[in-house]
Design a protein around this nucleic acid. Structure first.
Lengths: 226, 226
DNA sequence: TGCGCCCTCCACCGGCAGGAGGATCCGCGC
DNA sequence: GCGCGGATCCTCCTGCCGGTGGAGGGCGCA
């Protein structure tokens, strides 16, 4: 695959498991196990010293757990940040989400077939991500529940707004006053008030606070887009 | 694998592509292509009539596009909802997210190796999900950026609020007036105004609209939780 | 050409919001 | 006991917001 073999660091508190993985991986000509770490703290140090391409990381470990170790490894601002492939015994959501935030490039269950493991390592080393199917399912579900909005891209009422009104609404939802919106759109404050009034009437809302809430709830604006 | 073969419906506006996929799939003994649809509208009808286990759905199509068709197929409240495996030519985020919301069980790029395609169909038919590695990468990135929450559970400033103030803030973020909040909390409106004033001062905001926005942006309240 | 929709702007007015300033009560820690 | 912070309540005042009513200009469609 590559001229240089993929450098892998094994991190697990069970030596037996590390040995098992090592045997699987060393059977592949393009993969080289460059080290083993027994806990998170050592893993962080080893990752720094050995500069592996991929870190195979158990999530449950003494001292520093896998999530924290992942955070520290991926957080290190270096040229070549190792990719972290997380191993979980159970597909617990909490760990998955945490590790994700920590910057992991993938998740596998420990009962992964040897073949899939090596494939996953190659995938991750390329910069792509890999997630066990059963975990993917949950991820997608969480994702879908997070973004339920577009089912009604324009919740009926939103469609009744003119472009200008929708534009004003988004600015209201940023916390702008009428005067600020007027300045932003280069029109008079009176005009802004007209638009805001129309929005409130059309959406059946009372004041601009409810309009801002509506903007978020309808998906017109989304958290983080600020 | 199963006694009954996996029933697959092919949806793509290019007949040539359908034929190609059909040839690949029919070489597998546990997979049966039960139909082909040339556009989204027909796909919805076929899915209803043929009751496939898996729908292989192109995203770009005339009339009704793949996202809409997916929504209608997965949205149909029936015993056995077909799993939808979406095919994209490019790994465009927009389509992926849209299809996700629509209830798709997976995403593959059209240049997927034949072997991976059949594996994916088997995975999806089991109820698991499958996503092409390059797309997974993006999904994880979006995920991580979407849930920065735990890193700063309380964006510093939020922590400075008292319980009562935080309570008032969440009600402000629901679009409640001071009078309504007073009624809800069974205190006088004056008290509410005091709390709101404290919140604005502590968070460095100007008015309740900005407070509502802050509540959403900080994650104190979340869309859909209404 | 005329109708309708949208964007633009104005004046007037009532109301709620938010700031200033001060006050009481309670619980907690020194 | 005393101080401190939080929750509760009050008045006065200013200002922005939102409602009402009206008006002109541009653009598309019948």
């Amino acid at each position: 695959m590559t001229a240089q073999p993929i450098r892998v660091l094994l991190v697990d508190d069970q030596p037996l498991l590390r040995t098992g993985f090592r045997m699987i991986l060393e059977a592949e000509s393009d993969i080289a196990v460059v080290g083993e770490s027994g806990d998170g703290e050592q893993a962080v140090a080893d990752a720094r010293a050995l500069q592996p391409d991929v870190v195979l990381m158990d999530i449950r470990m003494p001292r520093v757990d896998g999530v924290q170790a992942t955070r520290q490894i991926t957080g290190a601002a270096r040229e070549t940040t190792p990719r972290v492939l997380v191993l979980t015994t159970f597909d617990l959501d909490e760990y998955v989400v945490e590790a994700l935030r920590a910057g992991a490039s993938g998740f596998l269950l420990k009962d992964v077939p040897a073949e899939d493991l090596v494939t996953a390592i190659r995938t991750v080393s390329r910069g792509d991500a890999v997630v066990a199917p059963s975990i993917t399912r949950r991820l997608l579900d969480m994702f879908a529940s997070r973004f339920p909005a577009t089912d009604s891209p324009t919740p009926a009422n939103l469609a009744h707004l003119t472009d200008r009104e929708r534009e004003v609404l988004t600015l209201v939802a940023r916390g702008y006053s009428n005067a600020e919106i007027a300045a932003e759109l280069v029109v008079s404050e009176t005009t802004v008030k007209t638009h805001v009034g129309n929005v409130l009437t059309k959406l059946g809302l009372r004041d601009r606070v409810q309009a801002a809430v509506y903007a978020y709830e309808s998906g017109l604006v989304q958290p983080g887009a600020l």
